[in-house]
Design a protein around this nucleic acid. Structure first.
Ligand SMILES: [Mn+2]
Ligand SMILES: [Mn+2]
Ligand SMILES: [Mn+2]
Ligand SMILES: [Mn+2]
Lengths: 220, 220
DNA sequence: CTTGACTTTTCGGCTTACCTAAAATATACT
DNA sequence: AGTATATTTTAGGTAAGCCGAAAAGTCAAG
Protein backbone atom coordinates (compact mmCIF):
# COMPACT_ATOMS: atom_id res chain seq x y z
CA UNK A 1 0.00 0.00 0.00
CA UNK A 2 1.14 3.52 -0.85
CA UNK A 3 1.72 6.19 1.78
CA UNK A 4 -0.57 9.22 2.10
CA UNK A 5 2.38 11.16 0.87
CA UNK A 6 2.80 9.29 -2.36
CA UNK A 7 -0.93 9.56 -2.96
CA UNK A 8 -0.83 13.32 -2.51
CA UNK A 9 2.03 13.64 -5.00
CA UNK A 10 0.13 11.64 -7.62
CA UNK A 11 -3.04 13.64 -7.04
CA UNK A 12 -1.16 16.93 -7.31
CA UNK A 13 0.49 15.83 -10.55
CA UNK A 14 -2.90 14.84 -11.96
CA UNK A 15 -4.43 18.17 -11.05
CA UNK A 16 -1.56 20.18 -12.48
CA UNK A 17 -1.68 18.11 -15.68
CA UNK A 18 -5.28 19.20 -16.15
CA UNK A 19 -3.91 22.61 -17.12
CA UNK A 20 -0.54 21.88 -18.72
CA UNK A 21 0.89 18.98 -20.68
CA UNK A 22 3.80 18.40 -18.35
CA UNK A 23 4.37 19.34 -14.72
CA UNK A 24 7.51 21.12 -13.54
CA UNK A 25 9.38 20.43 -10.35
CA UNK A 26 8.79 23.94 -9.07
CA UNK A 27 5.03 23.87 -9.78
CA UNK A 28 4.74 20.65 -7.84
CA UNK A 29 6.90 22.03 -5.03
CA UNK A 30 4.67 25.08 -4.72
CA UNK A 31 1.45 23.07 -4.82
CA UNK A 32 2.65 20.71 -2.09
CA UNK A 33 4.54 23.39 -0.14
CA UNK A 34 7.79 21.46 -0.03
CA UNK A 35 11.25 22.37 -1.30
CA UNK A 36 12.03 21.64 -4.98
CA UNK A 37 14.79 19.30 -3.85
CA UNK A 38 12.19 17.15 -2.09
CA UNK A 39 10.07 16.95 -5.22
CA UNK A 40 12.99 15.81 -7.37
CA UNK A 41 13.73 13.02 -4.92
CA UNK A 42 10.15 11.84 -4.66
CA UNK A 43 9.54 11.99 -8.38
CA UNK A 44 12.63 9.90 -9.03
CA UNK A 45 11.32 7.35 -6.57
CA UNK A 46 7.92 7.25 -8.28
CA UNK A 47 9.63 6.74 -11.63
CA UNK A 48 11.73 3.87 -10.25
CA UNK A 49 8.75 1.99 -8.79
CA UNK A 50 7.47 -1.28 -10.23
CA UNK A 51 5.36 -0.46 -12.14
CA UNK A 52 6.50 3.13 -12.71
CA UNK A 53 3.89 5.64 -11.53
CA UNK A 54 5.32 8.62 -13.37
CA UNK A 55 7.20 9.35 -16.53
CA UNK A 56 10.25 11.38 -15.69
CA UNK A 57 13.29 12.75 -17.49
CA UNK A 58 15.83 15.00 -15.83
CA UNK A 59 15.04 18.67 -16.39
CA UNK A 60 11.97 17.75 -18.48
CA UNK A 61 9.27 17.64 -15.84
CA UNK A 62 6.95 14.78 -15.03
CA UNK A 63 3.74 13.14 -16.24
CA UNK A 64 1.63 10.23 -15.00
CA UNK A 65 1.86 6.72 -16.40
CA UNK A 66 -1.35 4.73 -16.76
CA UNK A 67 -0.64 3.07 -13.40
CA UNK A 68 -0.07 6.46 -11.76
CA UNK A 69 -3.19 7.94 -13.29
CA UNK A 70 -5.25 5.04 -12.02
CA UNK A 71 -4.09 5.65 -8.46
CA UNK A 72 -4.55 9.41 -8.73
CA UNK A 73 -8.14 8.92 -9.89
CA UNK A 74 -8.82 6.48 -7.08
CA UNK A 75 -7.67 9.04 -4.52
CA UNK A 76 -9.64 11.79 -6.25
CA UNK A 77 -12.74 9.56 -6.20
CA UNK A 78 -12.28 9.16 -2.46
CA UNK A 79 -11.79 12.89 -2.01
CA UNK A 80 -14.85 13.96 -3.94
CA UNK A 81 -17.16 11.29 -2.56
CA UNK A 82 -16.12 12.23 0.95
CA UNK A 83 -16.68 15.92 0.25
CA UNK A 84 -20.18 15.21 -0.99
CA UNK A 85 -20.93 12.88 1.89
CA UNK A 86 -19.83 15.47 4.45
CA UNK A 87 -22.04 18.07 2.79
CA UNK A 88 -25.11 15.87 2.29
CA UNK A 89 -25.07 13.60 5.33
CA UNK A 90 -23.39 15.73 7.99
CA UNK A 91 -24.38 19.24 6.99
CA UNK A 92 -20.93 20.60 6.23
CA UNK A 93 -20.75 23.79 4.15
CA UNK A 94 -18.96 23.57 0.79
CA UNK A 95 -16.12 25.64 2.21
CA UNK A 96 -15.46 23.16 5.03
CA UNK A 97 -15.37 19.86 3.17
CA UNK A 98 -12.03 20.12 1.39
CA UNK A 99 -9.74 20.15 4.42
CA UNK A 100 -11.50 17.21 6.04
CA UNK A 101 -11.52 15.17 2.82
CA UNK A 102 -7.82 15.88 2.31
CA UNK A 103 -7.02 13.65 5.27
CA UNK A 104 -9.84 11.10 5.11
CA UNK A 105 -9.17 10.25 1.45
CA UNK A 106 -6.07 8.26 2.43
CA UNK A 107 -7.52 6.05 5.12
CA UNK A 108 -10.96 4.86 4.00
CA UNK A 109 -11.47 1.30 2.75
CA UNK A 110 -13.07 0.28 -0.52
CA UNK A 111 -16.08 -0.79 1.54
CA UNK A 112 -16.42 2.72 2.94
CA UNK A 113 -16.13 4.14 -0.55
CA UNK A 114 -18.86 1.80 -1.82
CA UNK A 115 -21.15 2.47 1.12
CA UNK A 116 -21.09 6.25 0.87
CA UNK A 117 -21.38 6.09 -2.93
CA UNK A 118 -24.51 3.97 -2.45
CA UNK A 119 -26.00 6.31 0.19
CA UNK A 120 -25.41 9.22 -2.17
CA UNK A 121 -26.91 7.38 -5.15
CA UNK A 122 -23.72 6.96 -7.23
CA UNK A 123 -23.28 10.70 -7.66
CA UNK A 124 -21.51 12.25 -10.65
CA UNK A 125 -20.32 15.52 -9.10
CA UNK A 126 -18.86 16.78 -5.83
CA UNK A 127 -20.09 19.89 -3.96
CA UNK A 128 -17.87 22.12 -6.11
CA UNK A 129 -19.10 20.65 -9.40
CA UNK A 130 -16.01 18.52 -10.04
CA UNK A 131 -16.74 15.19 -11.70
CA UNK A 132 -16.38 12.10 -9.49
CA UNK A 133 -14.32 9.36 -11.17
CA UNK A 134 -15.94 5.93 -11.35
CA UNK A 135 -14.64 2.88 -9.51
CA UNK A 136 -13.16 1.81 -12.83
CA UNK A 137 -11.09 4.98 -13.16
CA UNK A 138 -13.13 6.84 -15.77
CA UNK A 139 -13.87 10.49 -15.28
CA UNK A 140 -16.02 13.01 -17.15
CA UNK A 141 -14.57 16.24 -18.50
CA UNK A 142 -14.90 19.04 -15.95
CA UNK A 143 -16.76 22.14 -17.05
CA UNK A 144 -14.04 24.49 -18.37
CA UNK A 145 -15.89 27.60 -19.46
CA UNK A 146 -14.97 30.42 -17.09
CA UNK A 147 -17.62 33.00 -16.24
CA UNK A 148 -15.12 35.63 -17.41
CA UNK A 149 -15.47 34.27 -20.95
CA UNK A 150 -19.22 34.72 -21.17
CA UNK A 151 -20.48 37.45 -23.50
CA UNK A 152 -23.05 40.09 -22.54
CA UNK A 153 -26.66 38.99 -22.81
CA UNK A 154 -26.08 35.31 -22.17
CA UNK A 155 -27.85 33.38 -19.45
CA UNK A 156 -25.85 30.56 -17.87
CA UNK A 157 -25.67 28.45 -14.75
CA UNK A 158 -22.88 27.87 -12.22
CA UNK A 159 -21.47 24.40 -12.94
CA UNK A 160 -18.15 24.33 -11.11
CA UNK A 161 -16.02 26.47 -8.81
CA UNK A 162 -12.41 26.35 -7.62
CA UNK A 163 -12.47 24.57 -4.29
CA UNK A 164 -9.13 25.17 -2.57
CA UNK A 165 -9.85 28.42 -0.73
CA UNK A 166 -12.57 28.35 1.98
CA UNK A 167 -12.75 32.17 2.12
CA UNK A 168 -13.41 32.32 -1.62
CA UNK A 169 -16.24 29.81 -1.27
CA UNK A 170 -17.79 31.69 1.64
CA UNK A 171 -17.67 34.83 -0.47
CA UNK A 172 -19.36 33.06 -3.39
CA UNK A 173 -22.14 31.95 -1.07
CA UNK A 174 -22.74 35.53 0.03
CA UNK A 175 -22.93 36.61 -3.62
CA UNK A 176 -25.48 33.89 -4.34
CA UNK A 177 -23.06 32.16 -6.69
CA UNK A 178 -23.89 28.66 -5.52
CA UNK A 179 -23.86 25.51 -7.62
CA UNK A 180 -26.54 25.47 -10.32
CA UNK A 181 -27.49 29.12 -9.67
CA UNK A 182 -28.75 30.69 -12.90
CA UNK A 183 -27.25 34.03 -13.84
CA UNK A 184 -27.34 36.57 -16.65
CA UNK A 185 -24.36 38.59 -17.83
CA UNK A 186 -25.61 42.10 -18.57
CA UNK A 187 -22.31 43.85 -19.43
CA UNK A 188 -18.93 42.37 -20.30
CA UNK A 189 -16.49 45.21 -21.05
CA UNK A 190 -13.06 44.28 -22.46
CA UNK A 191 -10.91 43.19 -19.50
CA UNK A 192 -13.12 44.96 -16.96
CA UNK A 193 -15.41 43.54 -14.30
CA UNK A 194 -18.54 41.71 -15.47
CA UNK A 195 -22.02 42.89 -14.58
CA UNK A 196 -23.99 39.85 -13.55
CA UNK A 197 -27.60 39.41 -12.55
CA UNK A 198 -27.80 36.73 -9.89
CA UNK A 199 -30.47 35.88 -7.33
CA UNK A 200 -32.52 38.96 -8.26
CA UNK A 201 -29.79 41.60 -7.95
CA UNK A 202 -27.08 42.86 -10.30
CA UNK A 203 -23.46 42.79 -9.20
CA UNK A 204 -20.06 43.80 -10.52
CA UNK A 205 -17.75 40.79 -10.37
CA UNK A 206 -13.96 41.11 -10.51
CA UNK A 207 -11.79 38.93 -12.70
CA UNK A 208 -10.44 37.24 -9.54
CA UNK A 209 -13.92 35.80 -9.10
CA UNK A 210 -15.11 35.25 -12.66
CA UNK A 211 -11.95 33.33 -13.60
CA UNK A 212 -12.69 30.76 -10.91
CA UNK A 213 -16.37 30.17 -11.53
CA UNK A 214 -17.26 27.92 -14.45
CA UNK A 215 -20.59 27.91 -16.19
CA UNK A 216 -22.71 25.90 -18.60
CA UNK A 217 -25.57 26.80 -20.92
CA UNK A 218 -28.90 26.89 -19.10
CA UNK A 219 -30.71 24.44 -21.39
CA UNK A 220 -28.43 21.50 -20.44
CA UNK B 1 -0.24 17.69 16.74
CA UNK B 2 0.73 14.13 17.65
CA UNK B 3 1.39 11.43 15.08
CA UNK B 4 -1.03 8.52 14.58
CA UNK B 5 1.69 6.43 16.03
CA UNK B 6 1.98 8.31 19.26
CA UNK B 7 -1.80 8.23 19.60
CA UNK B 8 -1.85 4.46 19.15
CA UNK B 9 0.79 4.02 21.84
CA UNK B 10 -1.20 6.10 24.31
CA UNK B 11 -4.40 4.26 23.48
CA UNK B 12 -2.71 0.88 23.89
CA UNK B 13 -1.25 1.91 27.25
CA UNK B 14 -4.69 3.07 28.39
CA UNK B 15 -6.30 -0.19 27.37
CA UNK B 16 -3.65 -2.33 29.02
CA UNK B 17 -3.91 -0.26 32.20
CA UNK B 18 -7.59 -1.16 32.38
CA UNK B 19 -6.46 -4.63 33.47
CA UNK B 20 -3.18 -4.06 35.30
CA UNK B 21 -1.78 -1.22 37.38
CA UNK B 22 1.31 -0.79 35.27
CA UNK B 23 2.11 -1.78 31.69
CA UNK B 24 5.24 -3.71 30.76
CA UNK B 25 7.38 -3.11 27.71
CA UNK B 26 6.72 -6.58 26.36
CA UNK B 27 2.94 -6.33 26.80
CA UNK B 28 2.94 -3.11 24.80
CA UNK B 29 5.24 -4.60 22.19
CA UNK B 30 2.91 -7.53 21.70
CA UNK B 31 -0.21 -5.37 21.58
CA UNK B 32 1.30 -3.08 18.94
CA UNK B 33 3.22 -5.85 17.15
CA UNK B 34 6.54 -4.07 17.29
CA UNK B 35 9.85 -5.14 18.85
CA UNK B 36 10.34 -4.46 22.57
CA UNK B 37 13.29 -2.23 21.72
CA UNK B 38 10.98 0.01 19.72
CA UNK B 39 8.62 0.32 22.67
CA UNK B 40 11.40 1.32 25.04
CA UNK B 41 12.47 4.07 22.65
CA UNK B 42 8.99 5.42 22.12
CA UNK B 43 8.10 5.29 25.80
CA UNK B 44 11.22 7.24 26.68
CA UNK B 45 10.26 9.85 24.15
CA UNK B 46 6.72 10.11 25.59
CA UNK B 47 8.21 10.54 29.06
CA UNK B 48 10.54 13.30 27.87
CA UNK B 49 7.77 15.34 26.18
CA UNK B 50 6.54 18.67 27.50
CA UNK B 51 4.25 17.94 29.24
CA UNK B 52 5.18 14.32 29.89
CA UNK B 53 2.55 11.93 28.52
CA UNK B 54 3.68 8.88 30.44
CA UNK B 55 5.28 8.07 33.73
CA UNK B 56 8.28 5.87 33.12
CA UNK B 57 11.10 4.36 35.15
CA UNK B 58 13.65 1.99 33.67
CA UNK B 59 12.65 -1.64 34.15
CA UNK B 60 9.47 -0.56 36.01
CA UNK B 61 6.99 -0.31 33.15
CA UNK B 62 4.88 2.65 32.21
CA UNK B 63 1.67 4.45 33.18
CA UNK B 64 -0.18 7.46 31.79
CA UNK B 65 0.11 10.95 33.21
CA UNK B 66 -3.02 13.11 33.32
CA UNK B 67 -1.98 14.72 30.03
CA UNK B 68 -1.45 11.31 28.43
CA UNK B 69 -4.74 9.98 29.72
CA UNK B 70 -6.56 12.98 28.28
CA UNK B 71 -5.16 12.29 24.83
CA UNK B 72 -5.82 8.56 25.06
CA UNK B 73 -9.45 9.22 25.95
CA UNK B 74 -9.80 11.69 23.11
CA UNK B 75 -8.58 9.06 20.63
CA UNK B 76 -10.81 6.41 22.20
CA UNK B 77 -13.78 8.77 21.94
CA UNK B 78 -13.03 9.15 18.25
CA UNK B 79 -12.67 5.41 17.82
CA UNK B 80 -15.92 4.48 19.53
CA UNK B 81 -18.00 7.25 17.98
CA UNK B 82 -16.74 6.25 14.54
CA UNK B 83 -17.51 2.59 15.20
CA UNK B 84 -21.07 3.45 16.18
CA UNK B 85 -21.50 5.81 13.25
CA UNK B 86 -20.34 3.17 10.79
CA UNK B 87 -22.76 0.67 12.28
CA UNK B 88 -25.76 3.02 12.54
CA UNK B 89 -25.41 5.26 9.52
CA UNK B 90 -23.63 3.06 6.99
CA UNK B 91 -24.85 -0.41 7.89
CA UNK B 92 -21.51 -1.92 8.93
CA UNK B 93 -21.63 -5.09 11.02
CA UNK B 94 -20.08 -4.95 14.50
CA UNK B 95 -17.22 -7.15 13.28
CA UNK B 96 -16.26 -4.70 10.53
CA UNK B 97 -16.17 -1.41 12.39
CA UNK B 98 -12.98 -1.81 14.40
CA UNK B 99 -10.48 -1.96 11.55
CA UNK B 100 -11.99 1.05 9.80
CA UNK B 101 -12.16 3.10 13.01
CA UNK B 102 -8.55 2.25 13.79
CA UNK B 103 -7.43 4.42 10.89
CA UNK B 104 -10.13 7.08 10.86
CA UNK B 105 -9.70 7.91 14.55
CA UNK B 106 -6.44 9.75 13.83
CA UNK B 107 -7.59 12.04 11.03
CA UNK B 108 -11.04 13.38 11.90
CA UNK B 109 -11.48 16.94 13.11
CA UNK B 110 -13.27 18.06 16.25
CA UNK B 111 -16.08 19.24 13.97
CA UNK B 112 -16.47 15.77 12.55
CA UNK B 113 -16.50 14.34 16.06
CA UNK B 114 -19.21 16.79 17.12
CA UNK B 115 -21.30 16.23 14.01
CA UNK B 116 -21.43 12.45 14.27
CA UNK B 117 -22.00 12.62 18.04
CA UNK B 118 -24.99 14.87 17.34
CA UNK B 119 -26.37 12.62 14.59
CA UNK B 120 -26.09 9.68 16.99
CA UNK B 121 -27.73 11.59 19.85
CA UNK B 122 -24.69 11.88 22.15
CA UNK B 123 -24.44 8.12 22.62
CA UNK B 124 -22.97 6.51 25.72
CA UNK B 125 -21.79 3.18 24.27
CA UNK B 126 -20.15 1.85 21.11
CA UNK B 127 -21.38 -1.22 19.16
CA UNK B 128 -19.43 -3.52 21.48
CA UNK B 129 -20.83 -2.01 24.66
CA UNK B 130 -17.72 -0.01 25.53
CA UNK B 131 -18.42 3.36 27.12
CA UNK B 132 -17.75 6.42 24.95
CA UNK B 133 -15.72 9.08 26.78
CA UNK B 134 -17.19 12.57 26.84
CA UNK B 135 -15.62 15.56 25.10
CA UNK B 136 -14.33 16.56 28.52
CA UNK B 137 -12.48 13.30 29.01
CA UNK B 138 -14.76 11.57 31.45
CA UNK B 139 -15.63 7.94 30.92
CA UNK B 140 -18.03 5.53 32.62
CA UNK B 141 -16.80 2.24 34.07
CA UNK B 142 -17.06 -0.53 31.52
CA UNK B 143 -19.13 -3.56 32.47
CA UNK B 144 -16.60 -6.00 34.00
CA UNK B 145 -18.64 -9.03 34.95
CA UNK B 146 -17.67 -11.91 32.64
CA UNK B 147 -20.36 -14.37 31.60
CA UNK B 148 -18.06 -17.09 32.94
CA UNK B 149 -18.60 -15.71 36.44
CA UNK B 150 -22.37 -15.99 36.41
CA UNK B 151 -23.91 -18.66 38.66
CA UNK B 152 -26.49 -21.18 37.51
CA UNK B 153 -30.07 -19.95 37.51
CA UNK B 154 -29.29 -16.30 36.92
CA UNK B 155 -30.79 -14.30 34.08
CA UNK B 156 -28.56 -11.58 32.66
CA UNK B 157 -28.08 -9.47 29.53
CA UNK B 158 -25.10 -9.04 27.21
CA UNK B 159 -23.62 -5.63 28.04
CA UNK B 160 -20.17 -5.70 26.44
CA UNK B 161 -17.97 -7.95 24.31
CA UNK B 162 -14.29 -7.98 23.37
CA UNK B 163 -14.03 -6.21 20.03
CA UNK B 164 -10.61 -6.99 18.58
CA UNK B 165 -11.33 -10.19 16.67
CA UNK B 166 -13.83 -10.01 13.80
CA UNK B 167 -14.16 -13.82 13.64
CA UNK B 168 -15.10 -13.92 17.32
CA UNK B 169 -17.79 -11.30 16.77
CA UNK B 170 -19.20 -13.12 13.76
CA UNK B 171 -19.36 -16.25 15.87
CA UNK B 172 -21.18 -14.41 18.65
CA UNK B 173 -23.74 -13.17 16.14
CA UNK B 174 -24.40 -16.75 15.01
CA UNK B 175 -24.89 -17.79 18.64
CA UNK B 176 -27.38 -14.97 19.19
CA UNK B 177 -25.04 -13.34 21.68
CA UNK B 178 -25.66 -9.81 20.45
CA UNK B 179 -25.64 -6.66 22.53
CA UNK B 180 -28.50 -6.49 25.04
CA UNK B 181 -29.56 -10.09 24.33
CA UNK B 182 -31.12 -11.60 27.49
CA UNK B 183 -29.81 -15.00 28.52
CA UNK B 184 -30.20 -17.52 31.33
CA UNK B 185 -27.41 -19.64 32.73
CA UNK B 186 -28.84 -23.11 33.37
CA UNK B 187 -25.71 -24.98 34.48
CA UNK B 188 -22.32 -23.64 35.59
CA UNK B 189 -20.06 -26.57 36.53
CA UNK B 190 -16.70 -25.76 38.17
CA UNK B 191 -14.30 -24.78 35.35
CA UNK B 192 -16.39 -26.49 32.68
CA UNK B 193 -18.44 -25.00 29.85
CA UNK B 194 -21.56 -23.03 30.78
CA UNK B 195 -25.01 -24.06 29.66
CA UNK B 196 -26.79 -20.96 28.50
CA UNK B 197 -30.31 -20.38 27.22
CA UNK B 198 -30.21 -17.70 24.56
CA UNK B 199 -32.64 -16.75 21.79
CA UNK B 200 -34.86 -19.73 22.57
CA UNK B 201 -32.24 -22.48 22.46
CA UNK B 202 -29.78 -23.85 25.01
CA UNK B 203 -26.07 -23.95 24.18
CA UNK B 204 -22.82 -25.09 25.75
CA UNK B 205 -20.39 -22.16 25.77
CA UNK B 206 -16.63 -22.63 26.17
CA UNK B 207 -14.54 -20.54 28.50
CA UNK B 208 -12.91 -18.93 25.42
CA UNK B 209 -16.29 -17.36 24.76
CA UNK B 210 -17.70 -16.73 28.22
CA UNK B 211 -14.54 -14.95 29.38
CA UNK B 212 -14.97 -12.37 26.63
CA UNK B 213 -18.65 -11.63 27.01
CA UNK B 214 -19.67 -9.32 29.85
CA UNK B 215 -23.12 -9.16 31.35
CA UNK B 216 -25.30 -7.05 33.59
CA UNK B 217 -28.37 -7.81 35.69
CA UNK B 218 -31.56 -7.76 33.66
CA UNK B 219 -33.40 -5.23 35.75
CA UNK B 220 -30.94 -2.42 35.05
C1' DC C 1 28.06 31.78 -29.70
C1' DT C 2 28.46 33.44 -25.23
C1' DT C 3 26.76 34.96 -20.99
C1' DG C 4 23.82 35.34 -17.15
C1' DA C 5 19.43 34.29 -14.96
C1' DC C 6 16.73 30.84 -13.61
C1' DT C 7 15.49 26.04 -12.68
C1' DT C 8 16.64 21.58 -11.38
C1' DT C 9 19.43 18.18 -9.34
C1' DT C 10 22.92 16.43 -6.17
C1' DC C 11 24.94 16.30 -1.70
C1' DG C 12 25.20 16.04 3.15
C1' DG C 13 22.23 16.16 7.10
C1' DC C 14 18.06 15.90 10.02
C1' DT C 15 13.84 13.46 12.22
C1' DT C 16 10.72 9.64 13.20
C1' DA C 17 9.97 5.04 13.70
C1' DC C 18 11.36 0.75 13.07
C1' DC C 19 14.82 -3.41 13.43
C1' DT C 20 18.56 -7.00 15.39
C1' DA C 21 22.17 -8.11 18.41
C1' DA C 22 24.52 -7.32 22.54
C1' DA C 23 24.67 -5.56 27.19
C1' DA C 24 22.43 -4.57 31.50
C1' DT C 25 19.10 -5.43 34.95
C1' DA C 26 15.53 -7.93 37.49
C1' DT C 27 13.47 -12.22 39.20
C1' DA C 28 13.10 -16.72 40.52
C1' DC C 29 15.22 -20.91 42.24
C1' DT C 30 18.32 -23.65 44.74
C1' DA D 1 23.55 -15.57 48.63
C1' DG D 2 24.56 -17.00 44.05
C1' DT D 3 23.23 -18.30 39.61
C1' DA D 4 20.23 -19.05 35.66
C1' DT D 5 16.48 -17.22 33.04
C1' DA D 6 13.73 -13.70 31.34
C1' DT D 7 13.00 -8.99 30.49
C1' DT D 8 14.48 -4.58 29.28
C1' DT D 9 17.60 -1.31 27.54
C1' DT D 10 21.40 0.33 24.70
C1' DA D 11 23.96 0.47 20.47
C1' DG D 12 24.30 0.56 15.71
C1' DG D 13 21.74 0.54 11.45
C1' DT D 14 17.77 1.12 7.82
C1' DA D 15 13.97 3.55 5.29
C1' DA D 16 10.95 7.55 4.31
C1' DG D 17 10.58 12.31 3.82
C1' DC D 18 12.11 16.54 4.52
C1' DC D 19 15.68 20.55 4.34
C1' DG D 20 19.51 24.19 2.68
C1' DA D 21 23.55 24.92 -0.02
C1' DA D 22 26.25 23.95 -3.89
C1' DA D 23 26.68 22.10 -8.49
C1' DA D 24 24.77 21.27 -12.99
C1' DG D 25 21.81 22.16 -16.73
C1' DT D 26 18.60 25.10 -19.72
C1' DC D 27 17.49 28.85 -22.40
C1' DA D 28 16.85 33.52 -23.97
C1' DA D 29 19.04 38.04 -24.94
C1' DG D 30 22.67 40.20 -26.65
MN1 LIG E 1 -4.45 14.37 1.02
MN1 LIG F 1 -14.10 19.44 -4.42
MN1 LIG G 1 -5.22 3.59 15.34
MN1 LIG H 1 -15.40 -1.02 20.05
Amino acid sequence: MLSSNTEDYLKAIYELLEDSGRVTTSALAERLTVAPASVTEMVQKLARMQPALVDYERHRGVALTEAGRKIALEVIRHHRLIELYLAEALGYGWHEVHAEAERLEHVISEEFEDKIAAVLGQPAHDPHGDPIPTREGEVAEPCRRALSQVTAGETVRVARVRDEDPAFLTHLTELGLVLRAPLRVTRAPEGGPLSVEVAGSTRELERAITDHVFVEAVGV
